[in-house]
Design a binder for these strands. Structure first.
Lengths: 136, 136
DNA sequence: TCGGCAATTGACTTTTACGTAAATGCCATG
DNA sequence: CATGGCATTTACGTAAAAGTCAATTGCCGA
């Protein structure tokens, strides 16, 4: 049972569909292709994006929100891919993954600290409002 | 007891001390001053950074690691400051803080997802190593 | 007073991540 | 078959966030 046709999972997405879904421009998607982050197939000159491309775009957007550069995102995407066959490569990959995770853990610490400080700032505002006799 | 002099809390830091501590250039600190993020006092033309400036720089670096732009960092720093006196301003401030917190919560979700995927990627590598009969 | 080093200033350059415009292709529809 | 509507390619533009470089300038100890 191959489940091809008009099922839940689309075969292909057009570039405009994806620009709408992710709220980015066609220029940006073409840029990501130039950068080697995605490789949509072609029908003639027209790009056809598969679900795997769509998933990659999702990961790219996530990386962007976290403040990673295109190069860093490229590295992270590499890590998601199938592990290499050679032992040295595998060990290197594990090392890189561990580094990136340490990076993310630092970001998490930064994030929690910032959230805490914003908590305090908001509370100070609320208290100030209370002092002014404002019924929230 | 004013605790001035060679105590634990320094009165002033020089620009080079801070460039070493935070691993940034003097150009960068001057840039932040131009941008109004810090206001070191002057002795003659020389900048003297107080502990409060140092703390601000710490916050700036945190914001940078989280991928915030200079403008966003400026906004966040504003939020840490003393709350305004006027009710309308206070309510606006609270709204802005809540928005920024939502932003940070999104980042946290992105972060956890990315960490999870890197976990899986690393595990796949480790398994592959095991398959190859490598004793970790 | 002089040498030297640290700090400042200002101008110019660089990198990243796209935006924008112009010219053209492809194709369905009336 | 002309028209509209996306798509594509190529080329140049740009804003943010510094980096780099050169020319002072201030200050401190000998």
């Amino acid at each position: 049972m191959s489940r091809s046709g008009s099922g839940v999972v689309r075969e292909y997405y057009t570039i405009t569909e994806l620009t709408r879904e992710f709220d980015i421009s066609t220029r940006t998607l073409r840029f990501y292709e130039d950068e080697g982050l995605i490789q949509p197939v072609r029908r003639g000159r027209t790009r056809l994006f598969r679900p795997s491309d769509r998933h990659l775009i999702r990961q790219i957007m996530r990386g962007k929100r976290l403040g990673f550069s295109i190069n860093e995102i490229r590295e992270i995407i590499q890590m998601y891919k199938d592990p290499p066959g050679e032992v040295g490569q595998l060990k290197l990959m594990i090392k890189r993954i561990e580094e990136k995770r340490e990076d993310l853990r630092q970001k998490r610490r930064d994030l929690e600290e910032t959230l805490t400080e914003l908590d305090n700032a908001e509370e100070a505002c609320v208290e100030r409002l209370a002092e002014l006799g404002v019924n929230t």
